[in-house]
Amino acid sequence: MNILHIITGLTTGGAERALYNLLSGSLAESRSAAVLSLQDEGVYGPKIRSLGVPVYTLDMKRGISTPTVILRLRKLVTRLRPHLVQGWMYHGNIAASISARLGAGFRPVVAWNIRHSLYSLAAEKPLTRQIIRVNRWASVGADVVIYNSSLSRKQHEAFGFAMNPGQVIPNGFDTVSLFPDYERGQAARLALNMPLEAVVIGHVARFHPMKDHASFLRAVVDIMPKRPDVMCLLVGRDVDLQNPMLDRIVPPELESRFRIVGERDDVQDLMLAMDVFCQSSWSEAFPNVLGEAMALGVPCVATDVGDSRCIVGDTGEVVPPSDSDALARQLLSMLGRSAEERASLGQAGRQRIEERYALPKMVKQYSDLYTKLVSE
Results as ranks from 00 to 15, higher is better:
G346C: 07
G87E: 04
Q351M: 01
M194C: 08
D304W: 00
S344P: 00
R153C: 13
L369F: 13
P67I: 05
L331S: 08
F286W: 09
G13M: 04
A158R: 13
R72F: 10
D323A: 06
Q365L: 14
M245F: 12
I249Q: 03
V239L: 14
L76G: 12
A191Q: 14
V363F: 01
E340M: 14
N148F: 13
V110C: 07
E255K: 15
I94W: 06
T57M: 06
L27P: 04
S99P: 07
V134M: 14
E317W: 10
P320F: 14
I7S: 09
L127E: 04
L345D: 00
G291P: 00
G52M: 05
V43P: 02
K211M: 08
P225A: 09
S50W: 09
A34R: 10
V199P: 01
G349T: 01
P360H: 06
I132N: 09
A15T: 14
K47N: 02
T8R: 04
R342L: 01
G42W: 09
M210W: 02
A111M: 13
M89T: 06
G160W: 10
L73A: 05
T12R: 11
Q365D: 14
L217R: 12
D325T: 06
T66D: 00
F286H: 14
A33D: 11
I169F: 13
F207V: 00
G306W: 11
M60W: 05
S280V: 01
A326G: 15
G291I: 01
V35E: 04
D222A: 15
I7R: 10
R133L: 15
S338M: 12
S280N: 07
G14Y: 00
A302I: 10
Y147T: 08
N21F: 02
G92R: 01
G336W: 12
L369M: 15
A95N: 09
D325L: 09
A122K: 14
L121D: 07
S32L: 03
L234P: 01
P108S: 05
D266E: 10
E253L: 03
A302W: 10
V176C: 03
V261Q: 06
L58P: 01
S26Y: 02
F207A: 06
G25E: 12
I132E: 06
K125Q: 01
R107F: 07
H213Y: 15
R352Q: 01
F258G: 07
N288F: 08
D174N: 10
K75I: 10
F216M: 07
L335C: 09
S65N: 05
L38M: 15
Y366R: 08
A28W: 07
K154V: 00
V144S: 14
F161K: 00
V250E: 03
E354G: 04
